[in-house]
Design a protein around this nucleic acid. Structure first.
Length: 849
RNA sequence: GCCGGAAUGGCGGAACCGGUAGACGCAGCGGACUCAAAAUCCGCCGGUGGCAACACCAUGAGAGUUCGAGUCUCUCUUCCGGCACCA
């Protein structure tokens, strides 16, 4: 055995062993329980970042652990290869996105292999390959024929200088990122997927996902946003024509307090009013120019103007003014609301600002009136007042009565409203999956027939930031109508990349299948038993995948409904950032270049660059290029090896927490692996002697018991701690005896999912077996955990005052007696009555005086 | 703004069902080895008081429930994720 731990040699040899034996190839085997473990596939951005390393290490620990527990495991890997960054890189380097993407994939694949992940590379896929995106297109044409994919207008960010659509990310403070021009909103025709048709099912099924974190289910529930309410019609006359303004409200009980209505800038009433009133026109224009993003929209000052249109109240027939307001969204409900200033905070502020009437109609906890300023109690449901026939009714009675009266007049009914909107998938971009539609002057939008799929994306183009280059490529867009054969124009929009990632997990089950989207093998592997990825995907990606799975079920492709049985949402990887300040210009210094001096207590006293310039500590945050605080996994692997990188990432933090990077702690993980090696070396050279110590076995098996429990809970950081504790216990055993042999075998097996290379090497070196992955997972020995005596803590009034050792079988009386006999306990009990004695078996005694 | 989280020593974190707060590690301090350094090994390590035994304080802040609260309930503060075209 080598004296020193040489990670590079150990890792090379272990990876060679796995490759030779094809260790990670997965084959369907109905005789064994299957475990499909999947980490979210990466976007091939260039090189791996620490978030990837963390994600795939967590997945690998789960995969290898399950494998040793006898599961038939599948852990595949692929590439979410379409997307915006490739176009940006193409513009910067004048290289086609395809070449950039394929080069990145090749490099990152090498990095993943170097980390020793147990991946079945025969199943590798890239979403930018025609054999993958063909099935996006195939499914789209089916949804289109069913009406689940349809065309309507959608709002986009428009850069008027570059004449191009911008992603939200490309809008910086309301301006285009390249041109600096104020971004405009624009409505363009797009294709939508009717996810709202599945809203009810997507919501209800959340209650049957016990393997998902509650917080994710709650976020999805709120996102889907089911609310029960009443659709209310306010009749009005426009150009001598009778019309109805429809609104949705969850507070129909407050209808008698409605004093005006407000509509979105895009609402027909606003359009009408802007034609006859230049002020309204200017305001509508202003609203349309405003931000398209909800987060920004919600922050803008609430403003409005009267449209001059009046509607009549459906119960009282009172004339109410209609305002156009920037806080009403066209995308939600009817694009119009009834305003009840007395019982809605936003309406209240709007009414105060513009002097509109405020009419209280609900008795709230603070009384019957609603004096300024606004108080949250005003919005609480209560008994109706000033409401004519509805006076005295409570919330539900009033809603029911008002809904019934409205139904009688054909001016409303109860309605369920969803916050969820249909999914707009058209992107005016080159590097994506072409939407398989042909626009024919006589036949309209015609889906491309199966025989002509895939519609291949030309891979040689270089975008220039001014629109989609496909729209300037006649070879691509000039085509014939599949229905009538006349000249027609091919759609040049591509699909949202979320389409690609909504079903890739099913495709991993069916490598090589070119005759169908998925085949029978998907029925064996699906659903994914364990899915792992960042919490930032809690809503969109996970909801779209759940939607797609149902769509695929309804196409008869799969039986499974929920794609992911268990979900683990990992935290982000953070690092400190530092900068030097030269005349107000910040230069960001990579933490690796910063030297920190500490005071006697270990607190940071000062920090400077290696060449002595003082730096400012800017706190801890996500690793980013802009703050130059990324830690390159490759440098880490080269310095310490993959096992140290993996161990550190697992040890530093539980998977769901954020992980704050620390170079010193990495050093500590490396030290631990060196100690494991040193111990194995000492063990291999020691002579057999003595018997197993009872105490050592107790320690090791107690730690193992806890570690197995922690593995179940996915609390892997304490499993790494457990390995350290076992090594500490082993080092206390003199020489080599049955306890050290057993303990070392447990240690290596416990470590093997986390640090597979060193575990593999030592397992063979010390002749525990041929392949540690074929070994069984260690279980604690009940006999080793037996104890004759236990230590109990003694409290007086809940405060710790001492401890006693009692025989395991001691009864209450004996325990009480021993506790009272403890001198320090006596000090606190002396002269007082013991009112109550609480005995928690195996833990403590509490004397209440 | 709305939705969802998080907060424990100098730092990362542990504490299973409400039952010894600080496991394990990092940093720091002291020592051994060394000509010296690195590496390695041993010891100490929340705060205040005390020679010590020990006592008091302490889990973001404030209240509450309980024999007993880091853990449960309420209010607040700060930070983080998402908000539909970043992935």
């Amino acid at each position: 055995m080598q004296d020193a731990y040489d990670p590079a040699a150990v890792e090379r040899e272990a990876q060679h062993f796995w490759r030779e034996r094809n260790s990670f190839r997965s084959i369907e085997d109905p005789a064994r329980p299957k475990f499909y473990c999947l980490s979210m596939f990466p976007y091939p951005s260039g090189k791996l970042h620490m978030g990837h390393v963390r994600n795939y290490t967590i997945g690998d620990v789960l995969t290898r652990h399950h494998r040793m527990r006898g599961f038939n495991v599948l852990q595949p890997m692929g590439w979410d290869a379409f997307g915006l960054p490739a176009e940006n890189a193409a513009m910067a380097n004048k290289v086609p996105p395809a070449k950039w993407t394929y080069d990145n994939i090749a490099y990152m694949k090498g990095q993943l292999q170097g980390l020793g992940f147990a991946l079945d590379w025969e199943r590798e896929l890239a979403t930018c390959r025609p054999d993958y995106y063909k099935w996006n297109q195939w499914l789209f044409t089916r949804l289109f024929r069913k009406g689940l994919a349809y065309k309507k207008t959608g709002v986009v960010n428009w850069d008027p200088v570059d004449q191009t659509v911008l992603a939200n990310e490309q809008v910086i403070e309301g301006r285009g990122w390249r041109t600096g021009a104020p971004v405009e909103k624009r409505e363009i025709p797009m294709y939508f997927l009717r996810i709202t048709a599945y809203a009810e099912e997507l919501l209800a099924a959340l209650d049957h996902l016990p393997g998902w974190p509650e917080q994710v289910k709650l976020m999805q529930k709120n996102w889907i946003g089911r609310s029960e309410g009443v659709r209310v019609g306010f009749p009005y006359e426009l150009n001598k024509e009778q019309r109805t303004l429809w609104v949705f409200t969850t507070r129909a009980d407050t209808l008698m307090g409605a004093t005006f209505c407000a509509v979105a800038a895009e609402h027909p009433i606003a359009t009408f009013a802007s034609r006859r009133d230049p002020k309204v026109q200017a305001f509508v224009e202003e609203c349309k120019r405003g931000p398209a993003m909800e987060a920004e929209l919600a922050q803008v000052e609430k403003k409005g103007l009267p449209t001059g249109v009046f509607v009549s109240h459906p119960i009282t027939h009172e004339k109410l003014p209609v305002w156009v307001a920037n806080y009403v969204l066209m995308g939600y409900g009817e694009g119009a609301v009834m305003a009840v200033p007395a019982h809605d905070e936003r309406d209240y502020e709007f009414a105060l600002k513009y002097g509109l009437p405020i009419r209280p109609v609900i008795r709230h906890p603070l009384g019957d009136s609603v004096p300024a300023p606004w108080k949250p109690e005003y919005a609480e449901p209560g008994v109706c007042i000033n409401s004519g026939p509805y006076d005295g009714m409570d919330y539900q009675t009033a809603v029911d009565a008002i809904a019934a009266d409205l139904t009688d007049k054909s001016l409303g009914e109860k309605q369920v409203q969803w916050r969820l909107r249909d999914w707009g998938i058209s992107r005016q971009r080159y590097w994506g999956c072409p939407v398989p539609i042909v626009h024919c002057p006589s036949c309209g939008d015609v889906p491309v027939p199966d025989a002509e799929l895939p519609v291949k994306l030309p891979e040689h183009l270089v975008p220039d930031g001014t629109g989609n280059p496909l729209a300037r490529l006649p070879e691509f867009y000039e085509t014939k109508c599949p229905a009538c054969g006349k000249a027609a124009r091919r759609e040049t929009d591509t699909m949202d990349t979320f389409v690609d990632s909504s079903w890739y997990f099913a495709r991993f089950c069916c490598p090589g299948q070119d005759g169908a989207m998925v085949d029978a093998r998907a029925k064996y592997w699906m659903p994914v038993d364990q899915y792992i990825g960042g919490i930032e995907h809690a809503i969109l990606h996970l909801l779209y995948s759940r939607f797609f799975q149902r769509v695929m079920r309804d196409e008869g492709l799969l039986d499974v409904v929920e794609p992911f049985t268990n979900l683990l949402t990992q935290g982000m990887v953070l690092a400190e950032s530092y900068y030097t300040d030269a005349n107000g210009r910040r230069e960001w210094i990579n933490p690796a270049e910063v030297e920190v001096t500490r005071d006697a207590k270990g607190k940071i006293a000062s920090a400077r660059t290696r060449d002595g310039r003082p730096v400012v500590y800017d706190g801890i945050g996500t690793m980013s290029k802009s703050k130059n605080n990324g830690v390159d996994p490759q440098a880490l692997i080269e310095k310490y090896g993959a096992d140290t990188a993996r161990f550190y990432i697992i040890f530093a933090s539980p998977p769901t927490n954020t992980l704050e990077w620390s170079d010193e702690s990495v050093e500590g993980s490396f030290r631990f692996l060196k100690r494991v090696w040193a111990y194995a070396l000492k063990y291999s050279q020691a002579a057999h002697q003595g018997e197993a110590s009872r105490q050592a076995r107790f320690e090791i098996h107690s730690v193992l018991k806890q570690a197995n429990y922690d593995l179940q809970k996915h609390q892997f950081n304490t499993v790494a701690s457990a390995a350290m504790k076992i090594l500490n216990a082993l080092e206390k055993i003199p020489g080599r005896n049955p306890a050290s042999e057993e303990g070392l075998s447990i240690l290596l097996r416990l470590l093997s999912p986390i640090t597979p290379h060193i575990a593999h090497h030592l397992w063979r070196e010390l002749q525990f077996g041929d392949d540690i992955m074929a070994a069984s997972w260690p279980e604690p020995d009940a006999a080793a955990l037996e104890q004759d005596e236990v230590e109990l803590v003694v409290q007086v009034n809940g405060k710790l005052r001492g401890s006693i050792r009692v025989p395991k079988a001691a009864d209450r009386g004996a325990i009480e007696g021993l506790a009272l006999a403890n001198p320090n306990v006596q000090k606190f009990v002396a002269g007082q009555n013991v009112k109550k004695v609480v005995v928690v078996p195996g833990r403590l005694v509490n004397l209440v005086v």
